[in-house]
Structure formats: structure tokens, C-alpha cells
């Protein structure tokens, strides 16, 4: 059986909220290392990869590998019943029809129990190669969100260019052009505000802003976001979570003249 207890329901609520507009039905693959999810969006342009490691739960028990096929809209309805600070426990049998969710508020002695019906989801899994990216940029997640939202007002696409001097986001649209350049910057007192750039070679790529704005719904999960780029491969947008868990988004580039 599976039994996984999260100190704060907030984490799962935010993860599901960040991905539910991108993917609708997906498997939560549970094994002894944790709970993983991998799903492409309907257009097969983006891929979501989430890993909640066993260490993020306390306790965590998973006797047999189990795939929990969940409709995220339905899961959202159930999670709405959990307060952010509630202790959340996920439970399932070895061949489950339902996922049992328990929300506890120890202060008020409230215990809520929900059963979510599961589905059989035949999902193709993609092998994601370990990539040595040419550019890795770490920046405040709210800054990245602001840039994407601002540029989307002008254009569908953004060019991202990185050099040792900085990272430049630029777009061209019907009403005009826009560009935002961030230079590396270190703030000792507020490390969350740092912009860090590691570069082995310059990169220039174009991406759909609609997807990037969608990824930015995860900004509440982490104060910083990491962008990993190499020419002509998908962009990796990573939000690191506590206990080496993560929420990653991969976005295929736009290629051509």
C-alpha cells in the first residue's frame, strides 16, 4: 500500500494548480523513491516532470509500484477542501480504484477524508536524456513571470539570447518590439534576488510565450527558477522544491528563419 504524509497540503495544492491547465489526466507514479509525474500537454509541445521524493513526506511508505491515474480537475476540487496548513496524507491500496486523501488540522481537531476515483491512463513515457546545457540561468521566479507576461502583451513568441554579459528576452509584435535584459547580479543580503549565469557557449532560441506564462503559475512554489538552454533542444524550466524534489517543464523550441 501507499501512505504518504505531507506536513503542509499547500505543496500539493500549488503543484496541481501549476500544472492543471497544461495537462488534464495523468498518472502519479509511486514507488519507494517517491511520487513522480510525467505528462505532455495535448499539443505535444511541452512536458511536465514532477518528482516529490520520499524525503519530502514524513512518513512515506510504498510497498509496491503503483500508478494513480488522476484527473487533475477532479483532484483540484478535492484539494480545495484542504487548508494550506493542513497535514495531508495520501493513501492507496496496491491495486486501487480510489485515492484516499486525508486532511488534518491538529489545532482544531478536524479530520477530513475524501476518496477520489482513479482512472486507467495509458500514457507514453519519454526518456529525458541527461543534458549538459550550454547556459544555465537562475533568477527570481517572480521576475521571470513578469518578463513573460509583459512580453506576451506584444507577441506570441520570445527570443532568449544568453551571453556572458546577460540574458536577453526579446519579442516583435504588431504594435512594436520589446526586450528585457538581465545582467548577472549578486545580492548578499537577498540571495533570492540573484541573477546567476553559467555559460559554456552563447545560446539563442525562440519559444512560445503562452507556454512560458503557463509554467510561471509555479512561481509560488519557489522564489527562484532555473532556466537551462542549449541550441536546438528544449528549454528546461525548473522550480526546486524542498528535499531535492522538483517541478520541471520542458518546452520545444520554434525553429526556422
Amino acid at each position: 500500500m501507499l501512505e504518504a504524509r505531507l506536513e503542509q497540503a499547500d505543496l500539493l495544492k500549488k503543484v496541481v494548480d501549476a500544472i492543471k491547465d497544461l495537462v488534464q489526466d495523468c498518472n502519479f507514479d509511486c514507488n519507494d523513491s517517491g511520487v513522480a509525474l510525467q505528462a505532455m500537454d495535448n499539443s505535444h509541445v511541452a512536458l511536465v516532470s514532477m518528482m516529490l521524493k520520499a524525503e519530502s513526506f514524513s512518513p512515506y511508505r510504498c510497498d509496491r509500484n503503483v500508478a494513480l491515474g488522476v484527473n487533475l480537475t477532479s483532484l483540484t476540487k478535492v484539494l480545495r477542501a484542504a487548508q494550506n496548513e493542513d497535514i495531508l496524507t495520501l493513501k492507496a491500496e496496491d491495486a486501487p480504484d480510489v485515492l484516499n486523501l486525508v486532511f488534518e488540522n491538529t489545532d482544531s481537531d478536524r479530520l477530513s477524508e475524501y476518496d477520489l476515483k482513479l482512472m486507467d491512463i495509458d500514457q507514453e513515457h519519454l526518456g529525458i536524456p541527461d543534458t549538459e546545457y550550454a547556459a544555465t540561468i537562475s533568477l527570481p521566479s517572480v521576475e521571470f513571470r513578469r518578463i513573460c507576461v509583459d512580453l506576451m502583451a506584444l507577441s506570441e513568441s520570445v527570443s532568449i539570447e544568453t551571453s556572458k554579459d546577460g540574458i536577453k528576452f526579446s519579442c516583435a509584435g504588431d504594435i512594436g518590439n520589446g526586450a528585457v535584459t538581465l545582467r548577472p547580479n549578486t545580492n548578499v543580503e537577498k540571495p533570492d534576488q540573484n541573477v546567476e549565469i553559467e555559460l559554456t557557449e552563447p545560446v539563442a532560441l525562440t519559444f512560445s510565450l503562452k507556454y512560458l506564462v503557463n509554467f510561471c503559475k509555479a512561481a509560488g512554489l519557489s522564489k527562484t527558477v532555473k532556466l537551462c538552454l542549449s541550441n536546438e533542444v528544449p528549454l528546461l524550466v525548473e522550480y526546486a522544491l524542498a528535499g531535492s524534489s522538483y517541478l520541471r517543464f520542458y518546452l520545444a523550441p520554434k525553429i526556422g528563419d
Binding site: H44, H125, P129, G256
Partner: peptide, 14 residues
């Protein structure tokens, strides 16, 4: 114009 690539063309099917 640039063409949107598909993510599955970059990653191998398991």
C-alpha cells in the same frame, strides 16, 4: 516564420 517543434521529437519513447 518559425515552426513550433514537438517535444516528443527530442525525447525518446520508453
Amino acid at each position: 516564420a518559425k515552426t513550433q517543434q514537438s517535444i516528443s521529437s527530442f525525447f525518446t519513447k520508453k
